[in-house]
């Protein structure tokens, strides 16, 4: 693992929801341009973990450093980190009252203080990259799920983030649409983006990941490169999980 140029460094992270211990002593560092896939059964804390990274969830113990900035209650630092960390959600969460183009140019204009012309130009470039250039003046409700998710990816990229977080980006999609979204994500990975992806798409993990992390009950059970992870899983829990998701 690349320790020196790590862009995210998580140490002894603990989080509780009331009495429920959601994350237990998580240690994780992510190198620049590294692609990490997190998998595990539902309720294992994978989503919670990546949502802690941009402070959508507040952790109680331990530390998270993103790009050298420690996550604290300081609103200015949180905003700074959020504009450097893009996030893609399971349910897209596009703004339904804004057009595709407005969805993408909103944050560059208001957070990055770009001119509207410049922001829209960049948004158009990125929308072309995710293959939505013809639909820029439509509203999200007029697009298919797969198209919406690709717009959501473009919206996050418009902030020119250094890290992209994906929270089960294909779980709410039809099989055909899963493919188009995964292709976009593979292109993004090939362009050298640092990515943390929570997903059950093992084909994608195998193709893209530098490292696969398996979580269960709020802990990291096992982490390895895809080859070793799929072929020589160490723990029984991982073996059970893999047999359940690959055997049908």
């Amino acid at each position: 693992m690349i320790k020196d140029d790590s862009i995210i460094k998580i140490t002894k992270l603990n989080k509780w929801y009331g009495k429920f211990h959601a994350l237990k002593d998580i240690d994780l560092s992510v190198g620049t341009t590294e692609k990490i896939v997190i998998c595990g059964p539902s309720g294992s804390g994978k989503s919670t973990l990546i949502r802690c990274i941009n402070r959508l969830e507040v952790h109680q113990e331990g530390s998270i450093k993103v790009d050298g900035i420690e996550l604290s209650d300081d609103i200015k630092q949180i905003t700074e980190i959020r504009s450097d960390v893009g996030m893609v959600f399971q349910h897209f969460n596009l703004f339904p009252h804004l057009t595709v183009l407005e969805n993408c140019s909103l944050a560059p204009i208001w957070v990055r203080k770009k001119s509207k012309v410049e922001a829209e130009q960049m948004a158009m470039e990125l929308l072309e990259k995710v293959r939505i250039p013809d639909q820029v003046n439509k509203y999200p409700g007029q697009l298919s799920g797969g198209q919406q998710q690709r717009v959501a990816i473009a919206r996050a990229l418009c902030m020119q983030p250094r890290i992209m977080l994906f929270d089960e980006p294909t779980s709410a999609l039809d099989p055909e649409m899963i493919k188009e979204v995964l292709e976009t994500m593979i292109e993004l990975a090939d362009s050298g983006m640092t990515m943390i992806v929570v997903t059950h798409e093992m084909g994608f993990a195998n193709r893209v990941a530098d490292r696969i992390i398996f979580m269960d009950e709020g802990q990291i059970v096992e982490q390895n490169d895809p080859d070793s992870f799929f072929n020589k899983p160490q723990s029984d829990r991982t073996k059970l999980f893999l047999s359940q998701i690959l055997d049908h």
Binding site: N54, R82, S83, G86, M87, N93, F95, P96, R155, A156
Partner: peptide, 26 residues
């Protein structure tokens, strides 16, 4: 929805920008 608020926060909007541009219009 909560997702709208999370999306607004994740792209770095401040609280007042979020209220003005996301919550009120919707």
């Amino acid at each position: 929805s909560k997702g709208q608020i999370e999306a607004a926060r994740s792209i770095g909007l401040t609280r007042s920008q979020m209220v003005k541009m996301i919550i009120i219009p919707q």
